[in-house]
Amino acid sequence: MKNVTQNPAYFQLTLFADYGRLRYLFFTLCLLIYIMIISANMVIIITIMLERSLHQPMFIFICCLSVNSLYGSAGFFPRFLVDLLSDSHFISRPSCFIQMYVIYTYASCEFTILGVMAYDRFVAICQPLHYHTKMTIRKALSLWMTGISYPFVCCFVGMYLTVQLPLCGNKLPRIFCSNWPVVKNSCVDTTHNNAVGQFVTITTIFIPLLFVLFSYVQILIVCKTASAELRGKALQTCLPHLVTFVTYSFSVFLELSLTRFDTNKINPIVTAVLSLEYLMVPSINNPLIYGLKLPQIRAAVYQFTSGPKE
């Protein structure tokens, strides 16, 4: 029997619709959001780098979150802005897999960085006498490198297996390239790909999630019998991290749900909004939460923006 499988040179993102002149409004709004993401995260990064009093593990991890937000948004927004103004929504095969890899590594690294931050808060509150020996700047950078290296390797393995699949279709019902819609176009059995995908998801998302929950249970136990001063300090430093973690977990849950549901049965606008929420809200939320809630960063930002005193 003749083999009819093929690997298309382009994928079509079918979730885009013809909105007429409204496309220019959507383009302007999304461009402003992208500029806001870049500006807010750059303020956090530059402030932490220039202010010596912020050269501490907790603020190093916050800086890493902002770097990761810039990385993830760069993998999505430039292409998305072009698609908003385009009449055809085709993306080349190499560009599609590059975008997919960037977005997936961004998502995985966000969880591992949040997991490392939970460990930092656990040591600071539950083992305060050992904090300065267990959490040095060098140790913080080592934990960050380890935290991002594993997702980069795992996502590469999963992406390599997807690239090798023979595909019989090229339609992706998304506004950006996603692994599962590509896999569903395969002409062969994808059990092996599904197993690897589930392994990557569990090790890069659910294990850090469980670790964060475990850390906060231990922190709550310590705070229950601690002084009011310690409880106030713990709340001040842990609340921004907890808000960031919950917001991002909810966003990822929605994204994972979208990849498994038949998007043809869901309103395209709802699907697009949920996909945008996954990529936009955490990147805006992180600098705003940390910039507004942590007095050290807030004071440093105010000092830089107000200029030197006369």
Rank of each mutant, 00 (worst) to 15 (best):
Y10H: 11
I284Y: 00
I46G: 02
L288K: 14
V157P: 00
I205Y: 04
T190G: 02
T47C: 09
P268S: 10
I289D: 00
T146Q: 09
R260A: 05
D18K: 09
A300S: 11
K2E: 13
I37W: 00
D18Q: 15
G147A: 14
R23F: 03
Y10A: 06
A118F: 04
I269V: 13
M117I: 01
H132N: 07
V212D: 03
L235N: 14
A140F: 06
H89P: 04
L209A: 15
V273A: 12
M100T: 10
F59Q: 01
R79D: 01
K2H: 09
L254G: 15
L129W: 04
H130W: 02
K309W: 10
N194K: 06
R231V: 09
N185K: 05
T271D: 07
L65R: 02
I289V: 12
D83C: 08
S69P: 05
L235T: 15
F214S: 07
T247I: 10
V212W: 10
H192T: 15
T237M: 11
S227P: 02
L213M: 13
L141M: 11
A17K: 15
S149F: 12
T201Q: 01
L279E: 08
I48V: 03
F16K: 14
V4M: 07
I202W: 10
F253M: 11
P57K: 08
Y106F: 13
R174D: 13
I219D: 00
M1S: 08
S108V: 11
Y278C: 14
L256M: 10
L294A: 00
L276C: 08
F250A: 13
F16I: 04
L276R: 03
R121K: 12
T190Y: 06
L129N: 11
Q6V: 14
Y24P: 08
D18S: 12
I205H: 05
R138L: 04
I202F: 13
T136S: 12
T204F: 02
A226L: 04
I202T: 14
D87K: 13
L172T: 02
P166T: 01
I46L: 13
S142A: 11
A40K: 11
V102Y: 07
C63F: 04
I175V: 13
Q12S: 07
K265L: 08
L29P: 09
D120I: 12
L230Y: 06
V183T: 06
P287E: 14
L114T: 00
I35W: 03
S283E: 02
S95C: 06
F16L: 12
V43M: 13
I148A: 01
I35E: 06
L209Q: 13
F11T: 00
G291S: 11
F199E: 01
S73L: 10
Y302N: 10
P240C: 04
Q12F: 07
L167T: 01
V281L: 15
C109L: 04
S275L: 10
N286Q: 09
S88W: 11
C63H: 05
